Amino acid sequence: MESMKQRMLGGKLYKANDLEISVESQRGSDLVWQFNHLAPDKKAERAAVLKQLFHAFGDNNYIEPPFYVDYGAHTSIGDHFYANTDCVFLDTAPITIGNRVYLAPKVSLFTAGHPIDAAIRGEDLEYGKPIKIGDDVWIGGGVIINPGVTIGSDVVIGSGSVVTKDVPDHVIVAGNPARMIRRITDKDHAQWQQQKDEFLTWQQQADESQQSKQS
């Protein structure tokens, strides 16, 4: 017979007061508390706590406290991840995040749900649906991603959006509920490559100027 935790992770109705689930939740709460109360200069210690907290946590990642997650053990994060302050992950069901994903302040990933039927909801039964985020995604401030949503790769989500449906690759979405604004095109890549080239030229000139002053 499946356990209450297996029901939770499988998207079925469950009760959160189950002992196994409660122990795992307490573990997550303790590690989050440790992380949020470490001094700003304790970067190595912060990183070590996050490695313990999450199911997987890649390289070159940074989370700005305060941060909240229900369990942590149900969240997997790739490489080169950044989350600004006040982000919230409710990982009742698995959260999977790819590489080079950036979260602005107050981004919320909500896998948890409650029955629409009020009587059943009142019996403390709940469920979760997984959230998946691909590679190269930038999520603006205050965005909410609802249970069961999959976000593709090379995506930008505008600030304040509420994402209720899957998002395909190579698009910009925004709004409540979020809708596609337009596709990301070769013109976008060319425009930003031009700006990067200008920056590299400036950087080279700045470095040469600094070296000249030191010689």
Rank of each mutant, 00 (worst) to 15 (best):
E2C: 00
K5Q: 11
R7G: 02
M8C: 03
M8A: 08
L9P: 11
G11Q: 06
E20T: 13
N36R: 01
L38V: 06
K42H: 12
R46Q: 13
A47E: 14
K51Q: 14
F54W: 05
F57K: 03
N60S: 14
I63T: 07
H80N: 15
D91H: 07
T92E: 04
I97Y: 04
N99H: 15
Y102V: 12
A104F: 04
S108P: 00
T111C: 05
E123N: 09
E126C: 07
Y127W: 11
Y127P: 12
K132C: 11
K132F: 02
K132D: 05
V137C: 02
V137Q: 07
W138G: 09
I145D: 12
P147T: 02
V149L: 05
G152C: 09
S153Y: 06
I157F: 06
G158P: 07
S159C: 11
S161M: 02
D166R: 01
P168W: 03
D169A: 02
H170E: 09
A174R: 14
M180C: 08
I184T: 00
A190T: 15
Q191D: 13
Q191E: 14
Q191A: 12
Q193D: 15
Q195Y: 09
Q195G: 01
K196Y: 10
Q203S: 08
Q204F: 05
A206Y: 07
D207V: 04
